[in-house]
Simulated assay, not measured.
Amino acid sequence: MREMRDSPVPAGLGGAAASADGLTVGRVADSLGLTVRTLHHWDAVGLACPSLRTRGGYRLYTAPDVERLQRIIVYRELGLGLTGIRALLDDSHAAAPAELRRHRERIRERIARLEQLDTGLERMISAHERGILLTSEQQRAVFGPDWDPAWVEGARMRWGTTAQWAQYAERSAERGPEEWQTIADAMAEFEGALADAFDHGVAPGEPAADRLVDRHREVFSAYFPLSRSMQVCLARMYRADPAFAAHYDGIRPGLADWFRAIVDESARAHGVDPDTAVWE
């Protein structure tokens, strides 16, 4: 009969006794939420071996075997590798607290790193949604009293799905008031140089004008990389958009038109047709 063939050694145990004294691999796997393959692997490496076998060679786990498996599961959920688990189970119990303390310290370090990552992700999400991680008061302190924080929301609504907005947001996530102040100062210096050149009658295509065009791309790259073709589109927007036009013409009447002219001329000199330039 199958019950007698599969009864565990020692001889004399019947089918009912076999069920009471040992559990098959399948039943243990189901009860502990493991796979049969995992139990076979732990058996093969000597980490958790079933103590009994039937005469037919089937593995059977005793109650102490299952208890050892439960401890292995706990240690594995704590992040220990099989070597470390074996040491805890088989070495002197006196070494277990020290090993567990070491592992606890490693877990605390991981938690600290994850908390830093969580903070960074939170800032990244906010930057994508808000553009600038400054309060309205901080924005006006950095960009001037005429600054309208609603402009950032307008930019997000207009360009929030573009690759450039993503680049802008990723850089914004790492910036505080001091970093933004540095950027604002650099842009103010550039606009001052732009006004001086305009006052001195610098013409489009002259070396001084071309240097200003290059300087504009360099300063603007604090937000995201700007190609010559994109710069043409941006200069066109400075002239066409009422808010931008008012800003540049507020520095010098006619400055928006002149800036577009020097950008267009520089683009032509570098093989970019302003009439067909596109946002890349």
Rank of each mutant, 00 (worst) to 15 (best):
R86I: 00
G26M: 01
G84D: 14
D196M: 11
F244W: 11
S92C: 01
R175Q: 15
F244A: 08
I107A: 14
M230V: 10
W258G: 02
A209V: 13
Q181I: 00
M230R: 13
E174T: 15
D275P: 06
E218W: 09
R76Y: 14
G15W: 02
V263G: 03
D241P: 02
E170L: 15
A150R: 12
T83R: 13
Q139G: 07
E105W: 05
A208D: 14
R108L: 14
M1F: 09
A127Q: 01
G14R: 00
L100G: 07
W165I: 02
M230E: 09
W151F: 12
W159D: 08
G15H: 05
E137H: 08
G57P: 12
R228S: 00
A127C: 10
H200C: 11
Q138E: 13
D275Y: 07
S19K: 08
V142H: 07
A98E: 12
R101L: 11
G131F: 00
E265Y: 07
A17V: 00
T161W: 12
P204W: 03
R101D: 13
D90N: 11
R252S: 06
L52R: 02
G201Q: 08
I107P: 04
E191R: 04
Q70T: 15
D90T: 11
A29H: 08
G192E: 05
A63R: 14
R113Q: 15
I262R: 05
V202D: 01
G46P: 01
P225D: 00
L80V: 00
R140P: 07
A141L: 07
E189F: 02
D249G: 08
T135E: 02
G12E: 04
